[in-house]
Every structure is written in C-alpha cells, then in structure tokens.
Write a protein that binds this DNA or RNA. Sequence first.
DNA 1: AAATCGCCCAACCGCCAGGGT
DNA 2: CACCCTGGCGGTTGGGCGATT
Length: 284
Amino acid sequence: MVRPPCCDKEGVKKGPWTPEEDITLVSYIQEHGPGNWRAVPAKTGLQRCSKSCRLRWTNYLRPGIKRGNFTDQEEKLIIHLQALLGNRWAAIASYLPERTDNDIKNYWNTHLKKKLRQDGSVDCPVGPTGQRSASKGQWEKRLQTDINLAKQALSEALSFDPKSDKLVSNTTTTTTTTTTTSSNGENCNRTPTSPFFALTTDNISKLLEQWNKGSNSNSGSSSTETESSGSGSNSIMSPQPINSVGLGLDSCGPELSMLAEWLLDESVDQDQGQFCDMSLDFGV
DNA sequence: AAATCGCCCAACCGCCAGGGT
DNA sequence: CACCCTGGCGGTTGGGCGATT
C-alpha cells in the first residue's frame, strides 16, 4: 500500500490559482460533485494537492459565497458567536452561510480583534477560547449552560436599526434560494461599492468565456450581459439555481434565519429546546 | 514621484478526528 | 485492535495593493 505523499513536493504547484486551474476544478466538481478530493488532481490533471483543491473550492469557488465588506449585523453576529464559541470558525461560519470560515477568521483577525481592543473590550471576551483542552462533550454541555447568556448577547447584537430588518431575509434567501447572486452579483443589496463577487458558477462561466477569448481583457469586468439568466455560456455551467446543483451548499448547517428567528422569538426565552437542538447541530 | 509602511486576503502548514481496512 | 488514509479545522504566512510620508 505505498501511496504517494499528499503533497509531493516536486510535482505539486503552489501559490495563487490561475483562472485555468479554477475552471478545471469547477468543471470537474460540476460533473462529479465535491468530495473525493484525493482523486481530483489525478482526474483533472491539476498539479495541486488534494488539500489545495478542497480549500480552493470551499473558500473561493463554491457557489453562494459572498465577498466584500461585512455588514454590521454580520459583524455583531461574529463577535458574539466568537464570544460564545471561541475560535471555532467553521462553527461560526455555519451561521453565516455566505461566508467561509477563512473569511470570518481573516475578518476577525484583521478587523474585529482590533476593534474590540479599541472599544475596550477584551479581545476574547468570553467563551471557550481557553477551553481547548476540554473535550467536545464537555464543551457542548458548557455551551448549553451558557445558552441564556448567549441568547442575551446575540439579542443585543441583533437589536439593530429596524430599517435593516433584512437581516433575516437577506441571508435566508441566500441559502434557500441562493439569490442567484451568481447572475449579476447585484442581488447582494449591501455595500454596492464592494466587490461582492464570489466566483460563482456563473462567474466561472464568464471567466471561461473570457479566457477562451484570449487576452481580450477589455471585455472583462462583467460586461453588459450580466442579465443573461442563462449566463450565456452554457459551456460548463448549467443555468440551474446553484443551490440546487448539489454542490455542497446545502450542508451549510443552521441558517442565520433560524438563529434570528430564535432570537426574535420571545417565547423561546423560557424554552431552550430549540436552541438546544441547534447547539447539538453545530457540526463540531 | 518615489519610497516606505501597513493592511488585507488567499493560500499553506500542521494537527486532529473519523472511517476504512 | 491497530494502523493508515482522507478530510476538516485553526493558525500562520507572504504577496499584492493602497495609503501615507
């Protein structure tokens, strides 16, 4: 059972991914679905290790990823979830389906840590950060005992301007219908200045188009036909809603809407049942 | 206008857990 | 039961880019 090392130092390419590699990877996943990462480099001919492929997919290419500035709501949610969960970025990310754990981690390290420090808060307010040694079971128990505190904190965090009560709907639709952000990227109604532009399947298609056209760089920057629901280029991607493609997006864990609903539902105050279920669903 | 500094983010690395043999 | 393999996660790094001097 001699197996080649995961990252064969000679044959494995490192560094930034090229559009060609992205396209190769996406088209492979489109065909076979995510998973079996070990087979990906072999099947696609990519000079990347399986890990690298997986990371590229989950952090960048996966449909439904929102890029750009974090909203206040997201920020608050992250802060409080971090307080609650510690640096369990994957768990935190499960409540922000549009964000990757890497993004959240980066955002925390670059913005929030600093911000909290400036605000006079400790940089890791509460939470199990220092409890790494505890087993998961213990942690979960601890978590459940802290549920009331957490809820209070989260309620505070989400007691934002009623005008922006879109918190629920925004993120919800993104998971359930994935907002077809892919089609034009404008559906993300926040911070229009930011490049809200995840490399969705559609974008990849366009990427491929442009790439095929060669160095026709002028046509880049999402030309006029962003409207085309079928994305024009059906070469790789089918125009089906990306959430239904079954590319793993459905495994995003509990949706934010669920959390928000729970938060906003006063009646749950006395009854922790729902959240208990959720807490067991963290996917930790 | 050029040089320097600081920030951001994509990607890498190492460790760990779960599943399979 | 023990070992091996794969996938997942969190921490860290380094290149690119914009802001500042």
